[in-house]
Protein backbone atom coordinates (compact mmCIF):
# COMPACT_ATOMS: atom_id res chain seq x y z
CA UNK A 1 0.00 0.00 0.00
CA UNK A 2 1.27 3.50 -0.78
CA UNK A 3 -0.08 7.00 -0.32
CA UNK A 4 -1.19 7.34 -3.95
CA UNK A 5 -3.26 4.17 -3.83
CA UNK A 6 -4.70 5.05 -0.42
CA UNK A 7 -5.70 8.53 -1.61
CA UNK A 8 -7.09 6.95 -4.77
CA UNK A 9 -9.31 4.61 -2.77
CA UNK A 10 -10.40 7.51 -0.53
CA UNK A 11 -11.27 9.56 -3.61
CA UNK A 12 -13.29 6.63 -4.93
CA UNK A 13 -15.14 6.33 -1.62
CA UNK A 14 -15.73 10.10 -1.68
CA UNK A 15 -17.34 9.79 -5.11
CA UNK A 16 -19.75 7.18 -3.71
CA UNK A 17 -20.54 9.39 -0.69
CA UNK A 18 -21.22 12.44 -2.87
CA UNK A 19 -23.47 10.51 -5.25
CA UNK A 20 -25.39 8.70 -2.49
CA UNK A 21 -25.91 12.01 -0.66
CA UNK A 22 -27.05 13.68 -3.84
CA UNK A 23 -29.67 11.08 -4.76
CA UNK A 24 -30.90 10.43 -1.23
CA UNK A 25 -30.87 13.97 0.20
CA UNK A 26 -31.51 15.75 -3.07
CA UNK A 27 -34.20 13.17 -3.91
CA UNK A 28 -33.23 13.51 -7.54
CA UNK A 29 -31.06 11.66 -10.05
CA UNK A 30 -31.25 14.45 -12.62
CA UNK A 31 -27.94 14.73 -14.43
CA UNK A 32 -26.80 11.30 -13.25
CA UNK A 33 -26.44 8.55 -15.85
CA UNK A 34 -28.08 5.31 -14.71
CA UNK A 35 -26.23 3.61 -17.57
CA UNK A 36 -22.88 4.50 -16.05
CA UNK A 37 -24.01 3.32 -12.62
CA UNK A 38 -25.14 0.00 -14.11
CA UNK A 39 -21.75 -0.41 -15.78
CA UNK A 40 -20.00 0.23 -12.46
CA UNK A 41 -22.19 -2.38 -10.80
CA UNK A 42 -21.17 -4.90 -13.50
CA UNK A 43 -17.52 -3.89 -13.06
CA UNK A 44 -17.49 -4.46 -9.29
CA UNK A 45 -19.65 -7.60 -9.27
CA UNK A 46 -17.42 -9.23 -11.89
CA UNK A 47 -14.04 -8.04 -10.61
CA UNK A 48 -14.69 -8.90 -6.98
CA UNK A 49 -15.89 -12.47 -7.57
CA UNK A 50 -12.58 -13.45 -5.99
CA UNK A 51 -13.93 -12.19 -2.68
CA UNK A 52 -14.72 -15.81 -1.97
CA UNK A 53 -11.28 -17.27 -2.59
CA UNK A 54 -8.61 -14.55 -2.77
CA UNK A 55 -7.91 -12.91 0.55
CA UNK A 56 -5.36 -10.14 0.15
CA UNK A 57 -6.19 -7.99 3.20
CA UNK A 58 -9.11 -6.96 5.39
CA UNK A 59 -8.91 -3.50 3.84
CA UNK A 60 -9.28 -5.01 0.37
CA UNK A 61 -12.11 -7.36 1.21
CA UNK A 62 -13.99 -4.74 3.18
CA UNK A 63 -13.86 -2.16 0.36
CA UNK A 64 -14.84 -4.79 -2.22
CA UNK A 65 -18.04 -5.39 -0.27
CA UNK A 66 -18.59 -1.64 0.16
CA UNK A 67 -18.16 -0.95 -3.57
CA UNK A 68 -20.51 -3.75 -4.61
CA UNK A 69 -23.08 -2.64 -2.04
CA UNK A 70 -22.89 1.08 -2.92
CA UNK A 71 -23.00 0.63 -6.70
CA UNK A 72 -25.95 -1.79 -6.35
CA UNK A 73 -27.77 0.57 -3.98
CA UNK A 74 -27.31 3.49 -6.39
CA UNK A 75 -28.70 1.50 -9.32
CA UNK A 76 -31.61 0.28 -7.18
CA UNK A 77 -32.49 3.82 -5.98
CA UNK A 78 -32.34 5.40 -9.43
CA UNK A 79 -34.21 2.52 -11.07
CA UNK A 80 -36.86 1.60 -8.55
CA UNK A 81 -37.23 4.10 -5.69
CA UNK A 82 -39.59 7.01 -5.88
CA UNK A 83 -39.18 9.93 -6.37
CA UNK A 84 -35.68 9.38 -7.80
CA UNK A 85 -36.85 6.97 -10.50
CA UNK A 86 -39.10 9.65 -11.95
CA UNK A 87 -36.16 12.05 -12.26
CA UNK A 88 -34.25 9.69 -14.54
CA UNK A 89 -34.71 10.59 -18.21
CA UNK A 90 -34.31 7.51 -20.47
CA UNK A 91 -34.42 9.70 -23.60
CA UNK A 92 -31.39 11.70 -22.46
CA UNK A 93 -29.49 8.88 -20.76
CA UNK A 94 -29.57 6.55 -23.74
CA UNK A 95 -25.95 5.65 -24.44
CA UNK A 96 -25.87 2.15 -26.10
CA UNK A 97 -23.88 0.39 -23.37
CA UNK A 98 -23.96 -2.88 -25.32
CA UNK A 99 -21.34 -1.29 -27.59
CA UNK A 100 -19.15 -0.94 -24.50
CA UNK A 101 -19.85 -4.29 -22.86
CA UNK A 102 -19.41 -6.37 -26.03
CA UNK A 103 -15.92 -5.23 -27.05
CA UNK A 104 -14.74 -5.29 -23.42
CA UNK A 105 -15.93 -8.90 -23.09
CA UNK A 106 -14.07 -9.87 -26.29
CA UNK A 107 -10.95 -8.01 -25.09
CA UNK A 108 -11.19 -9.79 -21.72
CA UNK A 109 -11.30 -13.15 -23.50
CA UNK A 110 -8.32 -12.36 -25.73
CA UNK A 111 -6.06 -10.28 -23.51
CA UNK A 112 -5.81 -11.32 -19.89
CA UNK A 113 -3.29 -12.36 -17.28
CA UNK A 114 -3.50 -16.10 -16.69
CA UNK A 115 -6.00 -17.51 -19.19
CA UNK A 116 -8.26 -18.75 -16.41
CA UNK A 117 -12.02 -18.00 -16.50
CA UNK A 118 -11.72 -15.60 -13.55
CA UNK A 119 -8.79 -13.75 -15.16
CA UNK A 120 -10.86 -13.28 -18.33
CA UNK A 121 -13.69 -11.83 -16.23
CA UNK A 122 -11.22 -9.74 -14.25
CA UNK A 123 -9.68 -8.27 -17.44
CA UNK A 124 -13.21 -7.62 -18.79
CA UNK A 125 -14.00 -5.63 -15.63
CA UNK A 126 -10.80 -3.58 -15.98
CA UNK A 127 -11.54 -2.69 -19.61
CA UNK A 128 -15.20 -1.95 -18.83
CA UNK A 129 -14.31 0.34 -15.94
CA UNK A 130 -12.11 2.37 -18.30
CA UNK A 131 -15.10 3.26 -20.52
CA UNK A 132 -17.91 3.12 -17.93
CA UNK A 133 -17.90 6.92 -17.47
CA UNK A 134 -18.78 7.56 -21.14
CA UNK A 135 -22.59 7.54 -20.73
CA UNK A 136 -22.21 10.03 -17.85
CA UNK A 137 -19.94 12.32 -19.87
CA UNK A 138 -22.30 12.16 -22.85
CA UNK A 139 -25.22 13.07 -20.58
CA UNK A 140 -23.31 16.06 -19.18
CA UNK A 141 -22.36 17.09 -22.73
CA UNK A 142 -26.04 17.06 -23.74
CA UNK A 143 -27.01 19.16 -20.73
CA UNK A 144 -24.19 21.64 -21.30
CA UNK A 145 -24.15 22.77 -17.69
CA UNK A 146 -23.15 20.50 -14.79
CA UNK A 147 -24.87 20.68 -11.41
CA UNK A 148 -22.40 21.47 -8.64
CA UNK A 149 -22.52 18.17 -6.72
CA UNK A 150 -22.42 16.17 -9.94
CA UNK A 151 -19.28 18.01 -10.97
CA UNK A 152 -17.62 17.11 -7.67
CA UNK A 153 -18.74 13.50 -8.14
CA UNK A 154 -17.16 13.23 -11.58
CA UNK A 155 -14.02 15.02 -10.39
CA UNK A 156 -13.57 12.60 -7.46
CA UNK A 157 -14.13 9.66 -9.79
CA UNK A 158 -11.53 10.94 -12.25
CA UNK A 159 -9.05 11.69 -9.48
CA UNK A 160 -9.31 8.13 -8.11
CA UNK A 161 -7.91 6.52 -11.26
CA UNK A 162 -5.45 9.40 -11.77
CA UNK A 163 -4.05 8.66 -8.31
CA UNK A 164 -3.92 4.98 -9.21
CA UNK A 165 -1.71 5.90 -12.20
CA UNK A 166 0.72 7.51 -9.75
CA UNK A 167 0.47 4.39 -7.56
CA UNK A 168 1.49 2.20 -10.54
CA UNK A 169 4.46 4.44 -11.33
CA UNK A 170 5.52 4.31 -7.68
CA UNK A 171 5.17 0.51 -7.53
CA UNK A 172 7.01 0.08 -10.84
CA UNK A 173 10.04 1.93 -9.44
CA UNK A 174 9.94 0.46 -5.95
CA UNK A 175 8.98 -3.18 -6.49
CA UNK A 176 11.13 -5.52 -8.56
CA UNK A 177 8.81 -7.80 -10.55
CA UNK A 178 5.77 -5.52 -10.59
CA UNK A 179 4.12 -5.73 -14.02
CA UNK A 180 0.44 -4.94 -14.67
CA UNK A 181 0.18 -3.86 -18.30
CA UNK A 182 -3.59 -4.46 -18.41
CA UNK A 183 -4.44 -1.97 -15.64
CA UNK A 184 -1.73 0.44 -16.80
CA UNK A 185 -3.25 0.65 -20.25
CA UNK A 186 -6.88 0.72 -19.09
CA UNK A 187 -6.16 3.19 -16.30
CA UNK A 188 -4.45 5.56 -18.72
CA UNK A 189 -7.41 5.44 -21.10
CA UNK A 190 -9.83 5.89 -18.18
CA UNK A 191 -8.01 8.95 -16.83
CA UNK A 192 -7.60 10.33 -20.35
CA UNK A 193 -11.38 10.44 -20.79
CA UNK A 194 -11.59 12.90 -17.89
CA UNK A 195 -9.00 15.39 -19.19
CA UNK A 196 -11.59 17.52 -20.98
CA UNK A 197 -13.92 17.46 -17.97
CA UNK A 198 -11.08 18.36 -15.59
CA UNK A 199 -10.19 21.35 -17.76
CA UNK A 200 -13.74 22.75 -17.58
CA UNK A 201 -14.07 21.78 -13.92
CA UNK A 202 -10.88 23.70 -13.07
CA UNK A 203 -11.96 26.70 -15.14
CA UNK A 204 -15.29 26.86 -13.32
CA UNK A 205 -13.85 26.40 -9.82
CA UNK A 206 -10.87 28.72 -10.30
CA UNK A 207 -10.85 31.86 -8.20
CA UNK A 208 -12.98 30.30 -5.51
CA UNK A 209 -16.40 31.36 -6.76
CA UNK A 210 -18.22 28.25 -7.91
CA UNK A 211 -19.46 29.15 -11.35
CA UNK A 212 -21.31 26.14 -12.84
CA UNK A 213 -19.14 23.82 -14.95
CA UNK A 214 -19.96 24.46 -18.59
CA UNK A 215 -19.18 21.81 -21.23
CA UNK A 216 -19.20 23.05 -24.88
Amino acid sequence: MNIFRFLGDMSHILSFVILLLKITQGKSAAGISLRTQELYMIVFCSRYLDLFWNFSSLYNSFLKVVFIACSSAIVYIIRFKSPQKDTWNPELDNFPIQYLIGPCAVAGLLINQDWTPFEMIWAFSIYLEAVAILPQLFLLQKQGEVENLTSHYVAALGAYRGLYLMNWVYRYFTEDDYLQRIVWFAGTVQTGLYIDFFYHYYQSKRGGLSRPVKLP
Binding site: N54, S57, D114
Partner: peptide, 10 residues
Protein backbone atom coordinates in the same frame (compact mmCIF):
# COMPACT_ATOMS: atom_id res chain seq x y z
CA UNK B 1 2.59 -21.30 -16.34
CA UNK B 2 3.47 -18.25 -14.27
CA UNK B 3 2.11 -18.64 -10.73
CA UNK B 4 -1.29 -16.97 -10.58
CA UNK B 5 -0.70 -13.51 -9.15
CA UNK B 6 -3.40 -12.54 -6.68
CA UNK B 7 -4.78 -9.10 -7.51
CA UNK B 8 -3.92 -7.05 -4.44
CA UNK B 9 -5.49 -3.84 -5.78
CA UNK B 10 -9.17 -2.94 -5.84
Amino acid sequence: LAPERVHDEL
